[in-house]
């Protein structure tokens, strides 16, 4: 078995004049719960898109469980589950149909897909809404159903871009339990987030990315270096204003 679930080598992407991701290399060990943090517009989504086959990089490569996703996309994607941020779903399908669709697209057989779909709907707390069209789901429900589509083929590596955005606390806790179990049984998870507290509690490893550049990476304890992750993050990224902010924003 490959010891690195995801190996990013010198990935770079430029949009016009703007360098979105600048020569980033990152190693995500198997069985780790890896957090990817960075301010808005840091290049998290761009990097994950390149690592998951959605966006062709200008240079560099990404190895998913040892397989180069740009050289052998079909093989690499078999062991990879992705929750992409900012894309639609086929929302004229019902939740149940959508998850089934994702399973069948992966070439799984029908009984397996049926059982797993019901299981996923149950743990996502969506059983009652399985027959509703996804277009009528709330933002949080859509996140959860998308997560289900990413997990149905029991991938070795899950890449989740902003999985907890708009998800209610109870569902978020359920999803965290699922992910923790998944890691405990040998899976690898990468989540991007800007909730530091969540990352510190949940993840074993963390990488900080800012302005398209990798600022720090390693185990959470290594990176935070005795401070809270939030303080350390602000330290690395900078940009905190001084106390003389909005002097007029005083109610009395």
């Amino acid at each position: 078995m490959n010891s690195m679930a995801l190996e990013i080598r010198n990935l770079a992407k430029q949009f016009g004049d703007k360098v979105a991701v600048n020569n980033v290399s990152l190693q995500v060990p198997a069985k780790s719960f890896y957090g990817l943090v960075g301010p808005n517009g840091a290049g998290k989504t761009t990097m994950l898109s390149m690592a998951t086959g959605l966006l062709r990089p200008d240079q560099g490569s990404a190895l998913v469980n040892g397989v180069d996703i740009w050289a052998e996309p079909h093989t690499a994607k078999r062991t990879l589950g992705v929750l992409a941020d900012g894309v639609r779903q086929f929302d004229r399908l019902t939740g149940r149909q959508l998850v089934t669709y994702a399973g069948l697209l992966r070439g799984m057989d029908r009984e397996e897909v049926t059982t797993r779909t019901e299981d996923l709907l149950r743990v996502m707390d969506l059983s009652a809404d399985g027959d509703k069209l996804v277009v009528d789901y709330s933002a949080g429900m859509t996140k959860k159903i998308s997560l289900a589509t990413a997990m149905i083929h029991s991938p070795k590596l899950l890449v989740l871009d902003e999985p907890f955005e708009a998800v209610d606390p109870v569902s978020a806790a359920n999803i965290r339990d699922i992910l923790n179990d998944y890691v405990a049984f040998g899976g690898t998870v990468i989540v991007s987030s800007h909730v530091m507290d969540l990352v510190q509690r949940m993840c074993s490893h963390v990488a900080v990315i800012d302005g398209g550049v990798l600022k720090a990476s390693g185990t959470v304890d290594e990176v935070r270096d005795g401070m809270s992750l939030e303080d350390r993050f602000v330290d690395l990224v900078g940009g905190r204003g001084t106390s003389e902010g909005l002097s007029w924003l005083r109610t009395s």
Binding site: H74, K77, R78, A84, G86, V87, R88, L105
Partner: peptide
């Protein structure tokens, strides 16, 4: 017409 929902096809690696 698929618009970005097409991502599902890309991500699942359907040929």
């Amino acid at each position: 017409y698929d618009n970005t929902a097409f991502a599902l096809h890309v991500l699942t690696g359907v040929t």
